[in-house]
Amino acid sequence: MQIFVKTLTGKTITSEVEPSDTIENVKAKIQDKEGIPPDQQRLIFAGKQLEDGRTLSDYNIQKESTLHLVLR
């Protein structure tokens, strides 16, 4: 499924993921596309910071959901 990751600069990254993918996994995909190390990434969805060990389905993230990427 496709999800969108919006950066603070307003850029939107499209990523191909599975509901069973972990947040860590998603951060790795963002690193592949943007070159941002996962340890600098914080992903936010519905006002919550997403934890690395959890999966997209844990957070009820569905296709075409938009996550927000904040850098630390």
Rank of each mutant, 00 (worst) to 15 (best):
G35D: 06
Q2N: 11
K6V: 15
F45M: 04
L56G: 01
L50D: 00
E51N: 06
K11T: 08
V26P: 02
Q40F: 09
N60Q: 09
N25C: 09
S15P: 09
E24S: 12
I23T: 04
E18V: 13
D21M: 11
E64K: 08
T66L: 10
I61A: 02
S15G: 06
A28F: 12
D21H: 05
E16R: 10
G47I: 02
S65N: 10
T7N: 05
L8F: 13
P19Q: 06
K63F: 08
D32Q: 14
G53R: 09
G10C: 05
Q41Y: 15
E16N: 12
Y59W: 01
I36L: 06
I13V: 06
K6C: 11
G47H: 06
T9N: 13
I13C: 04
L56E: 00
I36W: 15
D32I: 12
P37F: 06
G53D: 11
K6D: 04
E24Y: 15
L67H: 00
I61E: 02
E64R: 07
F4D: 02
F4T: 06
K33W: 08
F45Y: 13
K63W: 09
E51G: 04
D58H: 12
V26L: 14
Q62M: 12
P37D: 08
V70H: 09
Q31H: 14
P38S: 14
N60D: 09
T22I: 04
K29V: 07
V5I: 15
T14F: 08
T55I: 07
E24R: 14
L69Y: 01
L67W: 00
H68I: 15
D21P: 01
S65P: 02
E18A: 12
L50H: 01
D52W: 04
I13G: 01
E18R: 14
S20L: 09
K29S: 08
G10E: 03
K29P: 01
K48I: 14
L8K: 11
I30V: 05
K48H: 12
I30L: 08
K33Q: 13
T12D: 03
I13P: 02
M1N: 04
Q62E: 11
G10Q: 03
I13Q: 03
P19W: 08
Y59L: 05
T12C: 12
L56T: 02
D52Y: 03
R54A: 08
K29M: 13
P19V: 07
I44G: 02
I61L: 03
E16K: 09
K63D: 14
L71D: 06
Q31W: 15
S65E: 07
T12P: 02
S57C: 04
Q2I: 15
V17C: 07
L43D: 01
S65V: 06
L67Q: 01
P38F: 14
N25V: 13
I30G: 00
K33Y: 08
V5R: 00
G47S: 04
S20K: 07
D52E: 09
N25P: 01
K6E: 07
G53A: 10
H68W: 15
K27S: 02
K27T: 03
L71T: 10
N60Y: 06
Y59D: 01
P37W: 07
T55F: 06
H68Y: 15
Y59F: 03
K6R: 11
G53N: 12
T14E: 09
Y59M: 03
L8C: 15
K33S: 14
Q40H: 11
T9H: 12
Q49K: 08
I30F: 03
A46P: 00
I13Y: 10
I61P: 00
V5P: 00
L43M: 04
T9E: 12
V70L: 13
A28Q: 13
L8T: 13
D32F: 11
Q31N: 10
E51Q: 10
T14S: 09
I30Y: 02
P38W: 14
I30P: 01
G35F: 04
H68Q: 11
A46Y: 09
S65G: 05
Q49T: 14
P37A: 10
Q31G: 11
T14K: 10
S15T: 15
R72W: 13
G10D: 04
L43V: 03
T9C: 13
V70C: 08
Q2W: 13
D39G: 10
R42P: 02
R42M: 15
L50F: 01
K48G: 05
A28H: 12
T22S: 07
G47Y: 05
D39T: 10
Q40G: 05
L67C: 15
N60F: 08
E18Y: 15
T9V: 08
D39V: 08
I30R: 00
V17W: 05
F4W: 08
F45E: 01
D39Y: 11
K11P: 04
K48S: 08
L50R: 00
T9Y: 13
T22R: 08
I44P: 01
E18T: 13
S20D: 11
E64A: 10
F4S: 05
Q2F: 13
T14N: 06
N60I: 03
E24V: 07
E16C: 13
L71F: 10
I30M: 03
S20R: 08
K29F: 11
P38T: 15
R54C: 10
I61N: 00
Q2R: 14
R72N: 12
S65R: 02
D52N: 10
